[in-house]
Simulated assay, not measured.
Amino acid sequence: MTRKNSEETTVQIKQFTIKEIDRGITKLERRVQDVEELREETVYSDPKIKNVEESIKETIREVYGQFSPEFIKYQHYTIWEGTYVIGDSFLGKQTKFQLGIEHAISMLNGLIERLAEKKFDLEQDPDTIKIQTFNGLNLHPRISNVCLNLYKDGHFSSAVFEASKSLINYVKEKSKRHDLDGTNLVRTVFSRNKPILGFNNLIDQTDLDEQEGIMHLFEGVVMGIRNPRGHGNITDDPDRAMDYIILISLLAYRVDNSSSILRED
């Protein structure tokens, strides 16, 4: 049984990921089990009914959100079917409670079925699957902040371009070389000879090779990723864009871990 919410609320429809759907279904299935246990000789006045009702409402809030249509509809839910009548008999009250149990189970199963249908629809859309995968990546915050929404909206080349710009700007900030840009910047900052930022201790040939190799990766981002998208009409598909952004994110993490090197000019 539900009551209308008298307060005006801005409705927010939940945009689920597949993982969120799976978690939501699991939680709702637990609430079905809770209600089914009430079938076992539970009297309508038993205090444990209130606990189950609160669990149902809290689960719907967690799964769909505070301002979702689902929570707005069920935020006052009670396991009861019919009107409350003063002086109603024990049998009458018990019957309404038992009908409420069946209604609660049906309501929860309905929510589960709609989530399962939503999951099926998401799994049939290849682009949606890619976006779900992208959402789950552990991207560097500086990179995800500038490209996540662009990627989700289908602007894949713009997402790559903004990510690459953010990486180069990060290099400028950490090296304090705002006077340089592009390949001149990364060759100066990450040179194996007198670098400003080092990726290791630079004590042997292996360290020097790593320093130079990663410097060339930064050059590749400038020359092969950032510049073409800044000067030309480049079209990236979701897979290629994701690969580029993962590379750019990895390099941003390497900047995080780089250390200032005392240069002897």
Results as ranks from 00 to 15, higher is better:
M1A: 10
M1H: 09
I13S: 06
I13L: 06
Q15K: 10
K19D: 13
I21N: 01
R23M: 15
I25L: 07
L28W: 08
E29R: 12
R31L: 06
P47S: 02
K48R: 10
K48D: 00
E54F: 05
T59F: 07
G65D: 03
I72V: 09
H76P: 07
H76D: 05
Y77F: 15
T78C: 04
T78Q: 12
T78R: 05
T78M: 00
W80L: 03
F90V: 01
L91C: 07
Q98M: 11
I101H: 03
A104P: 09
L111G: 01
I112E: 02
E113P: 07
A116V: 06
A116D: 10
F120N: 10
Q124R: 12
T128S: 13
Q132D: 15
L137H: 09
N145L: 14
L150I: 07
H155M: 14
H155F: 14
K165V: 07
K165W: 12
S166Y: 02
V171F: 00
K174F: 00
S175T: 05
D179M: 06
N184D: 15
V186T: 06
V189E: 07
R192H: 09
K194V: 09
L197R: 02
G198E: 11
N200P: 11
N201V: 13
Q205L: 12
G213A: 15
M215G: 12
V221K: 09
G224A: 07
R226L: 06
A241I: 08
D243P: 10
Y244H: 14
I245T: 13
I248M: 03
L250W: 11
A252S: 15
A252Y: 10
R254T: 14
E264T: 15
D265F: 09
